[in-house]
């Protein structure tokens, strides 16, 4: 009964690490970088790393710091994993990846504690939980473990930026609606009644649901247009014949 589902499908929501891109030959270096921004955005399209996306996005500042920390860990571990990919035996690769990631997370946590102690306190356990963020392990498994250093770093920068974009969208929506501020600056004046629910846990679920709905709506509209254009072309060809 459990035979038909692969572990990758079960883990991390609908798509696992296997949904990422395998090694492709002859892609321009720009492609490795840009694909993570939107088209293969780790959060909005691949649905990875949802825990931090929901948990710490109740203000723009928290989201930005979390995004930067994850970006740093992702780029650092991709660099190291890719550079040492020939020395890591296949059987213990996941454990080795996790060790490398945990090292970078420890560095990030100490740095945050020293630089922005307030935000570090607000993020709480979620800084340490970057270790189990599926985006990072997923990129090591799907990309950095089998590609040269340069491409892996580009890929990590792209995916890390994609994560940051998603975090900032979530953080902006929730802070603007939930507290009426942006980065702590009041936007609407004293007459605005904040939607307190948006900065509480349910608001996280609702905001992500609506962001995903918007993405799905755009995709659907694009697909419908493409189909219509195709039908139009076919009609033109038929008329010509």
């Amino acid at each position: 009964m459990s035979g038909e589902v692969s572990p990758a499908d079960l883990h991390c929501g609908a798509h696992g690490a296997s949904a990422g891109v395998g090694p492709r030959r002859a892609v321009p270096p720009g492609e490795d970088l840009v694909k993570g921004f939107w088209r293969e955005n780790p959060v909005l399209v691949q649905l990875l790393g949802l825990c931090p996306t929901l948990a710490v996005t109740n203000s723009v500042a928290n989201s930005a710091v979390m995004g930067i920390a994850t970006f740093f860990v992702l780029v650092g571990s991709s660099l190291l994993v890719s550079a040492s990919r020939r020395f890591i035996p296949n059987e213990v690769r996941i454990t080795s990846y996790i060790l490398i990631i945990a090292t970078f997370v420890s560095i990030a946590e100490m740095a945050l504690q020293a630089l922005v102690p307030d935000i570090h306190k607000a993020l709480g356990a979620f800084v340490a939980l970057i270790v189990v963020n599926c985006i990072i392990l997923g990129r090591q498994e799907a990309f950095a473990g089998r590609n040269p250093v340069g491409r892996s770093v580009l890929d990590a920068v792209g995916m890390g930026s994609g994560f940051m974009i998603a975090m900032l969208i979530m953080g902006s929506v929730r802070e603007v609606l939930g507290s009426g501020t942006f980065l702590g600056v009041s936007l609407f004046g004293p007459g605005f009644e904040p939607w307190v629910i948006m900065v509480l846990p349910p608001g996280g679920f609702f905001t992500l649901a609506f962001v995903l709905l918007t993405v799905a709506w755009f995709k659907r509209r694009k697909a419908l247009k493409a189909r219509e254009a195709e039908r139009h072309d076919v009609a033109v060809v038929e008329r010509a014949a």
Binding site: G13, A14, L47, I197, L200, P201, P202, G203, G204, F205, F206, L208, A209, F210, L212, L213, A216, W217, R220
Partner: peptide, 22 residues
């Protein structure tokens, strides 16, 4: 609706459950 099928719907339900748990 077609666009809401899948994760978005699950998240909406989760939000409502989370409201209830509050």
């Amino acid at each position: 609706p077609e666009v809401a099928k899948g994760t978005a719907l699950v998240l909406l339900i989760a939000g409502s459950l989370s409201l209830a748990f509050m």
